[in-house]
């Protein structure tokens, strides 16, 4: 971890589905470089045999009874859709 290479901003932005301008790339790479430098100190902690914590008070297997409950009406669910047609969300063509 102490040898973490430079953050490849193009690769990460692509994974994150974010279009960045050249200026943003330069700024973020520099700022995140100093943040990464800071977080690398975690490599100093001895975590041998330590279990990870995902939640402070883990609760597992939370089920409710399998009973149908009313969901959002279609009109309410579509209320915030940027484009809709015939009770469906419209998007640009997916397959040419």
């Amino acid at each position: 971890m102490s040898n973490a290479p430079e953050l490849n901003i193009d690769h990460i932005a692509k994974l994150a589905r974010l279009a960045l301008t050249p200026e943003e790339k330069a700024t973020f790479a520099a700022q995140l470089g100093s943040v990464l430098h800071h977080i690398e100190q975690l490599a100093k902690v001895d975590v041998t045999g330590v279990e990870p914590t995902a939640h402070a008070f883990a609760v597992t297997n939370v089920w409710r009874d399998d009973v149908a409950e009313p969901g959002l009406p279609v009109a309410a669910a579509l209320r915030n859709a940027p484009a809709q047609r015939e009770n469906m969300i419209a998007v640009p063509k997916v397959v040419e």
Partner: peptide
């Protein structure tokens, strides 16, 4: 971007998993 990086292939164990262990401590 930072979150995507720490979860990305090759860095997950070094950052995210390690952070969760330090969280335990």
């Amino acid at each position: 971007i930072l979150g995507t990086y720490v979860l990305s292939s090759g860095y997950y164990d070094a950052f995210y998993l390690r952070a969760q262990k330090v969280r335990t401590l």
